[in-house]
Amino acid sequence: MYSGLLCVPPMVHVIREEFGMTNAQVGLLMSLPLAALAVAAIPAGTLADRIGIKKATVIGAAMVSAGGFLRGAASDYVLLYLSTGLFGLGFTLIFPNLPKIVHAWFGREKAGVATGIYTTGIALGGTIPYVITLPFILPITQSSQGVFYVWSAPAAVAFVLCWIVLDEPKRAEAQTTPQRGDMPLKVLKDRNLWLASLLMFANCLHFYLWVSWAPSLMVLKGATPEVASAIASMRGWFGMLGMFLMPLYSYRIGLRKPFLWGSGLLLGCAALWAIVMPLAWGWVLMSAVGFVISGSFAMKLALPSELSRGGAIGSASGMILSIGYLGGLIAPWLAGYLFDLSNSLNLPLMGLFVIGLAWGFIGTLLPETGGRASPPAPIK
């Protein structure tokens, strides 16, 4: 999923030239899959609760594969948007299922560590396009459409594997039968899930602004597009470490909250520093941003399992992702729009500083879900 999604940022200058698009329009291209996730994550999570993990995941993988392939056939930006929308709908069917799969296979106690492991795969899929798209794939394909064809292949392989290998976990089967009809409404009334959703909103806003525009930021500071993509890829490499190590250390000490609110403050300061730092420090900046933002993201993906009560993990996950990914919807387009207006990314970076402060405050309001806390009581 993420290799198809994040092959766009390294090619911003190529897509603009081939399709005659502005920065804001390219930002919208990045936002479309996240828009689908924001709009449809709650019903997708509820659907997964009802029909089971395997059916929802296989359908989603088929849509991601088809949408990724059709992007390569797009002859104008309207068709490019439509095929990207199909890709996004498939993305939406898969993503809310991931916390449910973790809970079914590993239980609440190990959900954070298991989430850190599978999100390492997410980080790898989102990092490799920065490293190989411009120096290797684009010279062979000679167009962004050819690059889209290449990056549709992993999704096709994932579809086949889901169809053949994936089994419905026994614990998930028990959860998908039968569920109270008012469970989604109960989820929407849960204060803690709203706080978790706001944290995910801030995390996604930071994450998708960095992944969309970090290469352009480095170009503004004097890097070539190839070097800029290499610098931006440090976010992914160190993000893989953060996705594994931050949840692991959190579980060892039995605390979540310091990692959740501390990440926001650190990322806010990093955004402010990015405005004035020289290019040579870009490697350090992107490494630090990647470790913190991806580690905190992995911990937030475990929150539906840790906070939801009863059997509504899919619905809780859908709520957190739906609200959270509004940040991913807004950030790439708005940053591109401000980039077009000012020929600078300073305004978006100042916005990240403010959001980071708000993130830190919200993190202090969330209850502790670590080993030192009592498990949530079931809904009566």
Rank of each mutant, 00 (worst) to 15 (best):
A270Q: 09
P278I: 14
Y251P: 03
L272H: 11
P258N: 01
S263P: 01
R256E: 01
L245G: 02
G295K: 01
M246V: 15
L279Y: 02
L266Q: 13
M240V: 06
W283M: 05
L255Q: 01
W261V: 04
F259M: 06
P258Q: 02
S294I: 06
S250P: 00
G242M: 07
F291L: 13
L301C: 05
P247K: 07
F244S: 07
L245D: 03
G264F: 09
G239W: 02
Y249I: 14
V292E: 04
K300T: 10
R252M: 15
A270D: 08
F259A: 02
F297P: 01
S263W: 03
W281E: 14
Y249F: 14
F297I: 08
S294C: 13
L255D: 00
P278D: 13
G262I: 13
F297R: 04
S305N: 10
M246A: 07
P247W: 04
A288F: 15
L267C: 14
G254E: 08
V292N: 04
V292F: 12
L255C: 00
M246L: 15
L285E: 08
C269I: 15
W237F: 14
K300Y: 09
R256F: 02
W261K: 03
A280H: 12
L241G: 15
M246Y: 03
S250C: 05
V276F: 13
Y251E: 12
R252H: 15
S294M: 11
L255W: 00
F291P: 08
S263F: 02
V284G: 06
A280P: 04
A274R: 11
M277K: 12
I253T: 05
E306S: 07
S296L: 04
K300I: 10
L260A: 03
P258K: 00
G290Q: 09
A288G: 12
S287R: 09
M286F: 14
P278S: 12
P278A: 13
A302M: 07
R252G: 08
G290Y: 07
P304N: 03
V292H: 02
L303A: 05
P247A: 10
A280Y: 11
W237D: 02
I253P: 00
L279Q: 13
A274C: 11
A270V: 13
S250R: 00
W237P: 00
M240C: 07
L265V: 15
L272M: 15
G239N: 04
L285D: 06
F291K: 08
F291I: 06
F297C: 06
G264D: 11
K300G: 05
G264M: 13
L272D: 10
C269Q: 08
L301A: 06
I275L: 12
L301W: 06
L285I: 05
A274K: 09
V284R: 05
L248F: 13
F244E: 06
V292M: 10
E306A: 09
A270K: 05
S296H: 05
L265R: 08
G254Y: 05
S305F: 04
M243W: 04
L260N: 00
G239R: 05
L266R: 09
E306P: 03
L272Y: 13
P258Y: 00
R252F: 14
S263L: 10
W261G: 00
L303F: 12
S250T: 02
A270R: 06
F244V: 13
G254I: 10
A302C: 01
S263E: 02
P278Q: 11
A270Y: 08
S263Q: 03
P247I: 09
F244R: 06
